[in-house]
Design a protein around this nucleic acid. Structure first.
Lengths: 353, 353
DNA sequence: TTGTACGCGTTATCAA
DNA sequence: TTGATAACGCGTACAA
């Protein structure tokens, strides 16, 4: 049997002894306009032939594909998946389907996928971009395709942005660590590259530490090529740091840092550890790893909402809009320095809940 | 600007002073048949108008949507995501795009999504089903739509199956635990319900233990409703069991069991712990959790390959085919009873590598 | 090598 | 309330 032999609108019409138009109306949500008997005939015929409207043909005629496209930088990243979950839900609720492309952080694949999604005439695009196919994106935006950038954003593209309030998150992290009594902060990140959230987090960190004479801070990057880099960096850091704590810029870094600290035999808490991004295992590794959780699902839903708002909007294009969400602090054992209080005189501020 | 104003084939043809046919050929992969000058003219015109072929119209004409549909039971399950990654890669490599639906283990949503995917005329369907929309699936299969069932399978549906060799996996688990010196085995699972892999794993477990007089085994189910169930079950188990080990039927269970064991203050290794499904954190929780990893990416790729094989196949329908992959054992500290050898006389067999 | 004409399955417009 | 007909954007015989 070849790919599929589907019944068509016309066949249903014939079977029901009705016209194409009536059948179209029946399935197009205008049943009320048909007489009960006609409705019954069509319903029966459609059931007999196992008819399903062809969304492709629909899209062709009406220009509405009912498709939302999503570009994901790394589908194996729990953050991306969590957001995708929100996107998918919101889409379904509003009657859209989701066409996803995983780009594996490869700009070339990003372009390919972008072209592909465009060719399916998606009505909106949610993008978690790796490289910056800025030109391609802008060209799509110019054609009137609503765009939402997730988390990372590109200055050169005119699009809405939805993501985490990175400055606030870093503030929360620093405040928490300071209150817990840590004094030396290591900001551990992957190379910022083009990825704006990493840059923002680092910038805020730098900025905040300039205003905190009691805190010492530095930043180190984890290049993906060198698996042992984390251990060496942390070894250096622990060698001189007093009341040290590590602030991990994302989930990957938290994983690497946790491994490295374990390899070094460090005790979590005595060495502070706080990660941005919440992960399943964070409360599992004793004594629990403190995290700043992103409201991933809300972010995903907000992205779709933005998209559809633009679609429905008849007014001239609004200026790009930024929707930023606050992180939520999950305080756990890895930042409970007090548990190790020994020779430190008691100069930690109180943790306020 | 309304949704999009796209250039059409016809406009390009006019702009290039050529015919529709030539432009169609240019983009349909028959450039060689056009004279160099014509090619140039078309290329330029297309670029000027930022033309992109409309995949919808293409699909309409040729009956080839170039779309593969995938139904995922739970998109936040790392196993599902890992397989999806393989599926997506394989699709892209063969020029297909992936339309995904997350069903959240809800049969109703499953049906909805199925209808949706069908309406986009996907050329094949990869299904990780929760409930069993058997009738709907069979009806799609009858229409000639190639189906691949992932992991869980439905007896009543005539479709290919790709997944883990569950019997072999359980064998590997039991052999490993026995060799390490464990004698009391607890098979911890979510309620099997319709999900065939859980049933298979449990059946094999039962079967194997019947033939092992030295081993004692039992099974308990973790109902999702009661978060503390795991702790109680394990407490009971540890109260009587000698050289106890827990075999977790999937990643979720491993997570719950690990939490519960920690809450009970049990030491991993002294109490054996082996999970089916590999997860990021498994090597992180000291002393490392032993797992049986599924070759998720291979499974995803195999699913697509099956699908496309059926598509290309002109011969009459072959009987459904099962492709089963072996698991890979990651032996870690959580099953190293030897580390706790004290009063046990040394009757553990040697672990063979 | 290039162009003409028709049909894919659907919706929109208009007329009955 | 119903039906006929013309698009939608593209592929493909077939003819030139």
């Amino acid at each position: 049997m070849r790919p599929s032999r589907h019944a068509t609108l016309l066949e249903v019409a014939r079977e029901a002894n009705a016209s194409k138009t009536s059948v179209s109306r029946y399935f197009g949500g205008e049943r009320e306009r048909l007489s009960p008997s006609l409705q019954r005939r069509i319903a029966q015929a459609a059931r007999r032939l196992d008819y399903r409207p062809n969304q492709m043909a629909r899209g062709l005629k009406g220009g509405r594909s009912r498709l939302i496209g999503m570009l994901v930088a790394d589908i194996r990243n729990p953050y991306s998946v969590a957001v995708m979950h929100g996107v998918e839900q919101a889409c379904r609720e509003r009657g859209y389907s989701l066409l996803v492309g995983n780009t594996g952080n490869d700009p070339a694949q990003e372009r390919t996928h972008l072209a592909l999604l465009a060719s399916y005439r998606v009505e909106g695009l949610v993008i978690n971009a790796a490289g910056s196919p800025g030109r391609e994106l802008q060209s799509l935006a110019d054609q009137g395709l609503p765009l939402v950038l997730l988390d990372r954003w590109l200055e050169e593209v005119e699009a809405d942005v939805v993501g985490l309030d990175n400055a606030l998150a870093v503030d929360m992290a620093i405040d928490h660590l300071r209150r817990q009594g840590y004094r030396s902060l290591l900001f551990l990140s992957e190379p910022p590259g083009q990825a704006s959230p990493r840059q923002q987090r680092w910038q805020r960190f730098e900025q905040r530490l300039a205003g905190e004479p009691n805190l010492h801070g530095e930043r180190r990057d984890l290049s993906p090529g060198e698996p042992d880099a984390a251990r060496e960096i942390l070894q250096d850091f622990l060698a001189w740091a007093e009341r040290p704590a590590v602030l991990c810029a994302n989930g990957n870094v938290t994983l690497a840092a946790t491994r490295a600290l374990q390899a070094l035999g460090a005790r979590l808490g005595e060495v502070g550890l706080l990660g941005i991004d919440e992960l399943d295992w964070c409360e599992l590794v004793p004594p629990g790893i403190t995290t700043l959780a992103q409201p991933t699902e809300a972010i995903g839903r907000a992205a779709v909402q933005q998209l559809l708002a633009r679609l429905d909007d008849g007014t001239p294009p609004q200026p790009p809009r930024r929707t930023l969400y606050p992180a939520r602090l999950n305080a756990r054992g890895s930042t409970r320095l007090a548990a190790f209080a020994k020779n430190h005189d008691n100069d930690c501020d109180k943790e306020q809940r």
